[in-house]
Design a protein around this nucleic acid. Sequence first.
RNA 1: GGGCGAUUAGCUCAGUUGGUUUAGAGCACCUGCCUUACAAGCAGGGGGUCGUUGGUUCGAAUCCAUCAUCGCCCACCA
Length: 906
Amino acid sequence: MALSTRYNPQETEKKWYDHWMEKDYFHSEPDEREPYSIVIPPPNVTGVLHMGHMLNNTIQDILIRKARLEGKNACWVPGTDHASIATEAKVVKMLREKGITKGEIGREKFLEHAFEWKDKYGGIILDQLKKLGASCDWKRTRFTMEPKLSEAVLKVFVDLYRKGHIYRGLRMTNWDPEAQTVLSNEEVIYADENSNLYHIRYDIEGEEGESIVIATQRPETIMADTAIAVREDDERYAHLVGKKALIPLINRAIPIIADNYVELGFGTGALKVTPAHDQNDYDIGQRHNLEVIDILTPDGKLNENAQILVGEDRFEARIKIKVLLKEAGHLVELESYRTSIGRSERTKAVVEPRLTKQWFVKMNELARMALHAVESGEVKFHPEHMFNMYKSWLKEENVRDWCISRQLWWGQRIPAWYLDEHVFVAETAEEALAKAKKATGNDALTIEDLNQDEDVLDTWFSSWLWPMSVFDGFENQEELRYYYPTNTLVTGWDIMFFWVARMIMSGYEWSGELLGMEHVMEHGRMPFRDVYFTGMVRDNQRRKMSKSLGNSPDALKLIENYGADGVRFGMLSSAAAGNDIVFDAPFDNETKEVLNESKLCEQGRNFCNKMWNALRLVRGWEIDPKLEMSAVNKLAISWIENKVKETIERVEANFVEYRLSDALMNLYKLIWDDFCSWYLEMIKPEYEKPIDQATVDRTLEIFSDLMSALHPFMPFVTEEIWHQLKDRKEGEDCVISTYPASNDYDKALIKKVDQAKTAVAGVRDTRNTKGIKMKELLKVFIQDTPVAQELFKLDGLKSMIIKMANLESLEFTSEEVPNSVAILAGTEKFFIELKETINAEEECARLTKDLEYQEGFLKSVMKKLGNERFVSNAPEQVVAMERKKQADAEAKIKSIKEAMEQLGCS
RNA sequence: GGGCGAUUAGCUCAGUUGGUUUAGAGCACCUGCCUUACAAGCAGGGGGUCGUUGGUUCGAAUCCAUCAUCGCCCACCA
């Protein structure tokens, strides 16, 4: 069968993915093997694959495939997150386009629409992961809002309430006027934006001509003012404290109070106090017993309390009130100003501080335990310095209670029922009713008498249970006992607080209760042992790749262009843990669009092609069964086998430290340089000549091992080549093959062959500089020294050099060879005899350069050795090495000088 | 304001607890090759006083300090 000169990913990728699925290789059930489990960071159910997902999931797939090859019971649980705000916003938008509003159709109908939407778009991102090659256990696919996971959420809520960790209270919260829900502190993203500082004059009541000027960014909120505050010790205003100021335009009188929250130097030194619309003002209000006047509607418009501009949007009102204030002569100054504005992470709407009644989880104790878990090393972060960020968040003085209620419908509804002033928290309405009957002594109560809380829970309140709930751990611990703790969590550092910290908290809180002390003593209570934080994927201007910026290439188009393996290679080759990765997709300067191209992915694609052609070579050989294995082939096989072991050992170390891009690069070099460029060239038979059976058999074995080792990184091409190499039995697939071992290897052999390779490279270089064609056979002599004699005792080494450098002969010599170029391989000198008369001047120049280098080097070595304190203080080994360097350099210098003498260099 | 990280070749990055030659890789670049697996390739090559200035040490890209530039996190902000 003739193979194309190019590897074709489109043909093979679907074929093998279907094959793996058909064989059910990705499915895991508990058994006697060691488990290796990963839970996916669940993407938003209606999301699409972006570069961050590609990176993240490639890494998880590498880890899980490696574990599978090592014979572990690998289980990667996929799934999606219901993403409360994001999904609800999408559904609301979809309905709006149909002319329907949420309020009109009511909760139940809305949820029907939402589930319909979810069913329609929910699977897309998971299908896209399959294109990438993700070897998830698809039979275990979970969804954070499916019945079982929702039950777990309610159980946990009730449990925390019972333990006193959950409370409901009136607090200043972050309100998203667009989504019309409260947000947790973590969902508010602050950034500096341009704004204005309005200096507004308030007249003093009953004091003709007296006034006080305040500065504010939000003039539209003056109608909600209930005081003006100045510093106690501010002499400018001391005489006004206790008097009343009149709010411009509406002329409501408010007290002037003294509070040291006010800073002397900022603004005018007088602060308008608006307790309903600012956290700090609220605090001041509490201290001084001020009234709270809320002038905003939930969607961010002015309400009746404002008296003027009622019904205007807050930003429209700001523009209009500026004009009104100016006309009335109250606007003293307008100062441009840069300040930090908080926006909703999901809707990007400017967040409004608002006093609302919400449910909270007390965080003090949970945070302390979560901090301890990482501090003590029970959970390890990669890279380690991510702990600093984690710590700054969780330390006592920074941690704040977690607001978990959301004024949305898409999510788990809060399991709290109200009856007059009573609250009953229970997993079901029936239980709540029972509690109500008991509490009130009224047996005639029915479910209809109770009102369930209208709010749903924060999405993260379900995803923090993910490592336990995906194994149905809250219902039945059989699977949890086997798979928990999971091994590695792979996620971006941007959700360290949203998700990672909270999973650690929930693991601490419930794993003991669920699994029992014995299990916890043995395995720990944390949901994972290692956390691998990936960096953010950025464009070549270092901006975060995002949909809104339009600077991200289309992930699926990249896969079409380079193949999944090519893209995986590209993603990974620049991805050290925790470092942001700069993805090299170029911009089209004309269309201003990012191109679906990438040099790194191209390198990956080329690598596939390289291996493919190695396959074509090996497959194309004609075998002569009578042929004996040559000495060169014996040496080559023995060398590459040792080289594989050496590299696998390094790769293993890379994996332990999660240095996956190094691991890939080591394999890349092993396959491209050592295997293709050297090994295959060493054993390659002459044109149209056959090869022996044993060499081919060994080569196929080694090639197969290389495919197994590379499989976690590039699963499709390795599976395809693995099958092309040999006829495989049913069920014999690369995906479940055996990872090559890295037992002892012969370092001395590797070193000797390396020295021979240097000699070969020297001959090639001489050909290059002298313009000698590869076809032209050369005579080479090697200076007869004990070291050279020892080197050439290695069977096959001499013939290998002859073959690789294309020589006519390679002999020992005890004299300088006339009309030759002298090269050094290690300390050994080789003479390449030339047919043309050599250009002595050129040669002398080259040798002089060499000599200068060696002498400079020797000088630096001698400087060290001449330092008595070095010789006496440095470890013996280090000194010995320096002496060896000295001896080598001296030998080389001697050789070079002899050669120069021979040439008659001046 | 508090903290973290980065600064090494034209570009993107390694450099493993301070010492295996006077710093590596990939891409890009230069030279020569359509050599019968691969031009998406082969064989070679050039290129860095490791951001600055000091210090510790027999020895520093590596440890400490200082400054500079960049990125990020947290807090505050009338």
